[in-house]
Design a protein around this nucleic acid. Structure first.
Lengths: 152, 152
DNA sequence: GAATATTGGTTGATTTTGTAACTAACAACA
DNA sequence: TGTTGTTAGTTACAAAATCAACCAATATTC
């Protein structure tokens, strides 16, 4: 075990791989749309799965409610989404992409897909499948249970 | 391509996998030794590859010099390393783990290795190999690196 | 050998994230 | 009804990351 190296430490390797692979796309949507990563994630959820409340985004995306709250505020300020109070429970608001939000989403969605295809082209189909399987397992994304969000 | 999902976006998947897999170990060395992640990385480099300058750590570990500078200061404050000015270039300092630094390193090193074995036990040998290969490729870590100084 | 550029490293200001406390609406129950 | 507890979401404050400016030592240029 004296050969154990940072390259052999999977959490490290994952972190570097995540940073490297995210950098380009992140810079792209930041420069072009002034979006931060959490904003992009929230935005993606609304675009891909339709209108929902902040709470639903928290559960689905496993993002803490304070981050979602700030991302929603930023996206609303950019006129990418609107909030509408739910009559049957006035604590909640339905979030929905605006027309221009939809437009931007279509572009970002397509670009993300393209980017992904390009980056995966380095690998065989079998490698892609195994990589995906391992990552989903490590990320614990195959478990349907939403993570507890609150402090404590 | 209408089925493209966040789970299919590899940079996202990598980020979540990295966060999930890092969380436990990170909490461990933070609680036990008060180390931040950059500190742990710098520390690991010095322990694993022997004394070197901050610049060398920057290059090897691909960490920005401001982060390395602060990590080194923190590690020095904890008496885990010493700095010695290089006579032939007085801008540079050789960083070297202290006795107690070495001791802590041995423990952290062993625990990291154990942690890694445990986490990889979910996968077959073939899966482990492919995962590693893909991650190294994505992280661009197969690019030529400076050779290890075999002091460690 | 003086002027200028570059390099290793540090520091300060700004941005972003994380944690805790908070408000307002609803629910449960006496 | 009033009390207590819970939930959705925001805000305030602390910790941390990022970026630009900076200093001192060395290299380079004329």
């Amino acid at each position: 075990m004296t050969d154990f190296d940072l390259k052999d430490f999977t959490p490290y390797l994952l972190t570097i791989a995540a940073e490297t692979s995210s950098a380009v796309f992140q810079a792209y949507y930041k420069d072009r749309y002034g979006m931060l990563r959490t904003e992009w994630r929230v935005f993606f959820h609304l675009g891909r799965y339709g209108p929902m409340t902040a709470k639903e985004i928290c559960d689905r995306a496993r993002i803490h409610k304070t981050k979602v709250s700030r991302a929603v505020a930023a996206l609303a300020a950019k006129r990418y989404l609107t909030r509408k109070e739910l009559p049957e429970d006035r604590r909640q608001e339905i979030l929905r992409l605006t027309k221009s939000g939809e437009l931007v989403f279509k572009e970002l969605y397509r670009d993300a897909a393209d980017f992904n295809v390009q980056m995966m082209a380095d690998f065989t189909v079998q490698e892609q499948m195994i990589l995906r399987k391992c990552l989903i397992k490590i990320a614990d994304l195959d478990a349907p249970e939403p993570a507890p969000t609150d402090t404590g």
